[in-house]
Design a binder for these strands. Structure first.
Length: 191
DNA sequence: AAGCTGGCCTACT
DNA sequence: CAGTAGGCCAGCT
């Protein structure tokens, strides 16, 4: 590896918990997470959520503890994994490894991060905080959330308090919310 | 580069 | 309740 390859190197670690696989991609040079997988039934599927963006990845067990922490977040535990671990810098060029493509997306992710554990907010609420009526664009940005669980996009629901969509399917979204203690009846959040 | 396409919202049936 | 037309706007092509 030459110097440029080295600073952009992404290591992929995977942890298995209850038949679900959780992968993370991390740049050793910075120690920051560049991408987190949704829980998957197959190890390959979890890893591909990272590796498809980083063809030069290397598999490593170096960061399994972080993948494990993410699995605990999925189970509804509070952890100390925070935003400082994430590479939220806005991508500036074709060879930039940052998964955050625009300032709009970055701002949506930052607002979403503020939603407390066990609570929900609406897409509209986030849009209004960003002083825009681009409600759908907020959803689209969260649909591309590179850091599920840590950036809790599962806590963002529709204005009528129905669940709304999720990159991993709305039933997974409901599952995560239930694990956090949110009460849900059918497809709707209860106050 | 002018149209698409969407993790949405409101208003109405 | 359910379904949907028409509005909105960021990002992609």
């Amino acid at each position: 590896l030459n110097y440029i390859d080295n600073i952009n190197e992404v290591m992929v670690s995977t942890y298995k918990s209850n038949k679900l696989y959780f992968s993370v991609g991390i740049t050793p040079a910075t120690g920051k997470i560049v991408r987190i997988s949704l829980p998957k039934q197959e190890k390959k599927a979890a890893m591909e959520e990272i590796t498809k963006y980083y063809p030069n990845f290397e598999v490593s067990d170096q960061y399994v503890d972080i993948a494990k922490t993410i699995s605990r977040m999925y189970q509804g535990k509070k952890t100390d994994l925070n935003i400082d671990m994430l590479n939220l810098r806005v991508n500036e060029s074709y060879d930039d490894i940052s998964p955050v493509k625009t300032y709009f997306m970055r701002n949506v992710l930052l607002e979403t991060y503020e939603i407390p554990f066990g609570e929900v907010r609406t897409y509209k609420f986030l849009a209004e905080k960003l002083k825009t009526r681009a409600y759908r664009a907020v959803g689209t940005a969260l649909g591309n959330n590179p850091f599920p669980m840590v950036i809790p996009c599962h806590r963002v629901v529709k204005s009528d308090l129905t669940i709304g969509q999720y990159a991993g399917g709305s039933s997974l979204k409901k599952e995560i919310l239930k694990n956090e203690g949110v009460s849900i009846k059918g497809n709707k959040i209860l106050k």
